[in-house]
Nucleic acid binder design. Structure first.
Length: 424
RNA sequence: GUGACCAUAGCUCAAUAGGCAGAGCACCUGGUUGUGGCCCAGGAGGUUUCGGGUUCAAGCCCCGAUGGUCACCCCA
């Protein structure tokens, strides 16, 4: 029985890493540009932390999607299913609320949910996560959205737009939910079974139904944005105003709700193409009560989670090629024991000088070594043999045009550097 | 957790009507002295996902398990 990855877990192979480095490199670059500082929190945390952040209505809790086990000391611990709870814990634990506001953090790493895998959904996936803490200005919501948008834009995506909604706050949302529930109870007989369940467990969830019958009912259903309190309405209007000024494309989607219950006011997603049913490239929103819920002072916050696997899938679907990864352009070949020792030394000198280089291993025929050089895709094969060494030169073969010339060993480094345009 | 479809070499796929498991690509070696690609020859690589059953005979038919894909649920 051969080993294989667990269900829903994937290897990222070298041929995929051009995409990953492209996306992650851009994420880090943009975080720097927007003034976000990097933070890493543990993959494993006390289970209670995640339960508190998620509350009861979330599927992660309901459907036992947490990877949990009992640690040796009896503590129940879990692999993190999302970033925000851990970051909030770190924020409180290290008294980061005493830092100059706002505190802007980003993190990159794997998350784990025991779900049934399908297109764009895995049990382990990597997220780029950004959080802006201690600021309730709608311009903060905008900044988080702009960070996400810039990432997609600079990666070369076309035609993406935000799905945007406001789901109110603890002041105005309860009244809205009451209206919503009342509305659906009036149409209870036409409501499909799945949505009856959602209505009981998490009424807002009915809004993003896929049932035809419910969709028809939603035409007339009360909308959250029509039931916002004064503060929430102003916040939402400021945000859309800023989005207009920056010309960031968005549509107001009254049916947009989010999986985590801690969101207030702003919620948004960006949808990608060719991702099947799992079309959210990122999801985020405002979570003003969250820091408090993990034992910290009342602190407003906005954040976004961006799925790297989905971006990579979407890049491929849109035919966007990442820049090629750098690879050595030189291989040192050799004939004879003395020449091989010299080749080992030369390869080392090249690398120490910052010039990527490969060494032909073994003591095979020149033909075989050239074949290796060809397959490694190098531009130059540097050939060392007794004959050359006696005259203090190396034969450099250009693998592209098949030309060869002798270069004095003393000047080889600078010769190669010049040809490959590597700054010294 | 529910449902549908699928599973043959590292990859992409063949294998009449149940009748000796194959090709292309990739990989290794060779085509004589110190020269890659193209070409030619050869080689390695399989418990046909696994376990049962039917049959003289199963990659093929039946049952079960596992895994994959897609959808629901939910979400990045």
């Amino acid at each position: 029985m051969r080993f294989q990855t667990l269900k829903g877990f994937n290897d990222i192979l070298p041929e995929d890493y051009a995409y990953w480095r492209f996306v992650l490199g851009k994420a880090v670059e943009l975080s720097d540009r927007f003034g976000y500082e990097q933070i890493d929190t543990p993959i494993l945390e006390a289970t209670r932390l995640f339960l508190r952040g998620l509350q009861e209505g979330s599927a992660i809790v309901l459907d036992k999607e947490l990877y949990s086990f009992e640690d040796h000391d009896g503590t129940n611990v879990s692999l993190r299913p999302e970033f925000t709870a851990g970051v909030m814990r770190a924020y409180v634990e290290h008294g980061m609320h005493t830092r100059p506001r706002p505190v802007k953090l980003f993190a990159i790493g794997p998350l784990f949910r025991h779900e049934k895998p399908q297109a764009g959904r895995f049990r382990q996936h990597v997220q780029f996560n950004a959080e802006l803490l201690g600021e309730e200005d709608a311009a903060a919501d905008l900044e988080i959205m702009q960070l996400a948008y810039s990432l997609y834009h600079e990666l070369g995506f076309k035609g993406l737009q935000f799905q945007l909604n406001s789901i109110g706050c603890p002041d105005c949302r309860p009244a809205y939910i009451e209206k919503l529930v009342a509305y659906f109870q009036n149409h209870h007989d036409t409501l499909p079974e799945v949505d009856r369940r959602r209505l009981r467990v998490n009424p807002l969830r009915v809004l993003d139904t896929k049932e035809e019958a419910t969709l028809a009912l939603l035409e007339e259903a009360p909308r959250a944005i029509d039931h916002l309190c004064e503060t929430c309405r102003e916040h939402f209007e400021s945000l859309t105003g800023y989005l207009d000024v920056l010309a960031l494309p968005y549509v107001i989607n009254p049916r947009l709700v989010r999986g985590f219950d801690y969101y207030v006011r702003t919620v948004f997603e960006v949808w990608g193409e060719e991702l099947g049913a799992q079309n959210a490239l990122c999801g985020g929103g405002r979570y003003d009560g969250l820091v408090e819920s993990v034992g910290g002072p009342k602190t407003p916050g906005v954040g976004v989670g961006i799925g790297i696997e989905r971006i990579v899938l979407s890049l491929k679907a849109q035919g966007i090629e990442p820049p090629a990864l750098p690879r050595p352009e030189i291989m040192t070949l050799h004939l004879g024991a003395e020449a091989k020792t010299r080749a080992v030394l030369l390869t080392s000198e090249l690398r120490n000088a910052g010039i990527p280089a490969l060494l032909a291993f073994g003591s095979r025929s020149l033909k075989s070594q050239l074949k290796s050089a060809h397959r490694a895709g190098v531009r130059y094969a540097v050939i060392l043999a007794e004959d050359e060494l006696a005259r203090g030169v190396a034969t450099v073969r250009d693998m592209v045009d098949s030309s060869q010339q002798e270069v004095p060993l003393s000047g080889l480094l600078s010769w190669l550097r010049q040809r490959l345009e590597i700054p010294s």
